[in-house]
């Protein structure tokens, strides 16, 4: 069995947004849509610290779909448009089935990882970018990180892993004890987002 997931060394994330941009380009995300966002654990504005000068702290948390092992969204989708791939654990989205009820968006505790195309997808440069293999974006359905399923199909990693200049993003199979991600969570302290929700996310943040 395989269980794909991410390890992100948030201790060393500098919020450059390369991963967010890589995702946006690879998946030809429409204007205003971001599947991967970098959250600032600090002050009220993005990229500002908590505390008072000069006693300050800041931490950056890239957040996309957590591809939970116990996903709240999969349970509630009335038509099964959101479903979990049994082989890999990836939580997937079938745009063609989605009726746009947004129940999954209410059920997911990680608000913001799911995006809804509130209008006909607009593309600033008027032509597609990114991969030729991604499913077409549709008006008024829910979308989210697909773990670059189209790249997994070619034996490649998700698009957000390699471009990280800080080299803090890792992806792999948690069911394989010798994989890099398994080793990282064995060797280093980590945290997960909203663990008390019991969704068992497949994203681990090294701290």
């Amino acid at each position: 069995m395989t269980h794909y997931g991410f390890v992100i060394d948030s201790k060393s994330c500098i919020s450059c947004h390369s991963c967010a941009v890589a995702c946006k380009v690879e998946n030809n995300l429409p204007d205003s849509i971001w599947w991967n966002r970098i959250l600032t654990d600090g002050g009220p504005n993005m990229d500002t610290p908590a505390g008072t000068y000069p006693n300050l702290t800041i931490r950056n948390i890239p957040m996309g779909c957590q591809h939970c092992e116990n996903p709240a969204c999969v349970k509630v989708c009335p038509v099964g448009a959101t479903y979990q791939d049994p082989e890999t654990g990836v939580v997937r989205q079938d745009y063609d089935k989605c009726i746009g009820c947004r129940m999954c968006m209410s059920a997911c505790p990680y608000t913001g990882v799911r995006s809804f195309n509130w209008e006909e997808p607009q593309y600033a440069i008027g032509q597609p970018m990114g991969s030729l293999d991604i499913p077409q974006h549709q008006k008024q359905v829910v979308e989210k990180c697909t773990m670059c399923w189209h790249r997994l199909a070619q034996g490649e990693k998700p698009a957000c892993i390699e471009p990280c200049p800080a080299r803090i993003r890792f992806w792999g199979d948690f069911d394989d004890p010798s994989s890099e991600v398994s080793q990282l969570i064995r060797e280093r302290e980590y945290m997960q987002l909203l663990p008390e929700q019991g969704t068992r996310p497949s994203v681990y943040y090294l701290v």
């Binding site: 989708c77 038509v79 089935k97 989605c98 009726i99 009820c101």
Partner: peptide, 20 residues
């Protein structure tokens, strides 16, 4: 609904585990 035309799917693909 975002895609009301697909209402029929509620009966074709029903996820009987969903409260909705």
């Amino acid at each position: 609904l975002g895609q009301p035309v697909r209402l029929w799917e509620l009966f074709a693909y029903s996820n009987l585990g969903s409260p909705l």
